[in-house]
Design a protein around this nucleic acid. Structure first.
Lengths: 133, 133
DNA sequence: TAAAGTAGGTACTTAAAAGTAACCATATAA
DNA sequence: TTATATGGTTACTTTTAAGTACCTACTTTA
């Protein structure tokens, strides 16, 4: 689960709030949530280290604001590494940190599941093929 | 990545929108996202089938509205099964569907990662222990 | 007679997240 | 001389999601 704005009614039940906030699974899933996040990780994983501008161009449609937010969040979570070179113009390179790489097997698992379900659904919706032959 | 409201600027670039919406990993992650979702699955997974009222009591702090929304979404995604008995009062039981159970290894993987990172962080913040002895 | 439990539905409000646009300093290229 | 690129930041607006409260219909219980 993910913790939204704790409403007043819940804010009083600290036990419940803690139970949700302390869930370690939730903490990790919350990192991946939100638009663009897995997309950014995907680009870094498959394309290798990228500079800010390159990322912005490859993650089509993202705004600089959100890209910055996501990168800061991922950096804080140690999923992404930020290399800043104070040249002019400045050169900032983002790459997958060790923890980011550790997510790979799990993301692959999600991918396999997703593709399998997709196939199963497609097959289930195609009894016409058998009937037509 | 998750698809937010497609802004006008992006709406024209259908290729980009498709690239994001069609991502199967994203489709699955989006199901788990949002407050309470993994919590609901967790309760069904560990406690077994539960009725609406029971769920609402166990998922502390959730509102009936959101619980209903989440269950409908999970049912549509075939992660959860809904059994409706037209008794009086009506009896509605929710249980984990096969696809919901298939998520277990992946969620366990997230849990292991999360706990390990938590431990690593705790150790990294405790060099005082060594120094004190 | 009124309350409580069943499983929600609906309307309204609020808060968070995301989007847009303008701006910063600096240097190079046209 | 103006535009472009670098890597952002900031203010403002819009969209979406979530929360709150009240309602249904029927039965059993106090």
């Amino acid at each position: 689960m993910t913790n939204p704005a704790p409403p007043a009614a819940v804010r009083r039940e600290d036990a419940a709030v803690d139970a949700r906030s302390a869930c370690p699974v939730d903490a990790v899933l919350r990192l991946l949530m939100g638009p663009w996040t897995t997309y950014i990780l995907y680009v870094l994983r498959t394309q290798g280290p990228r500079r800010f501008g390159e990322l912005k161009r490859e993650v089509t449609g993202i705004s600089a604001k959100v890209l910055t937010e996501r990168l800061r969040m991922l950096e804080e979570a140690q999923l992404v590494r930020r290399d800043y070179q104070a040249t002019i113009p400045p050169q900032v390179t983002y790459s997958l940190a060790p923890r980011g790489a550790e997510l790979t097997p799990m993301l692959d698992m999600v991918k396999d599941l997703a593709l399998r379900w997709q196939t199963e659904d497609a097959v289930a919706l195609q009894p016409a093929r058998q009937a037509a032959e």
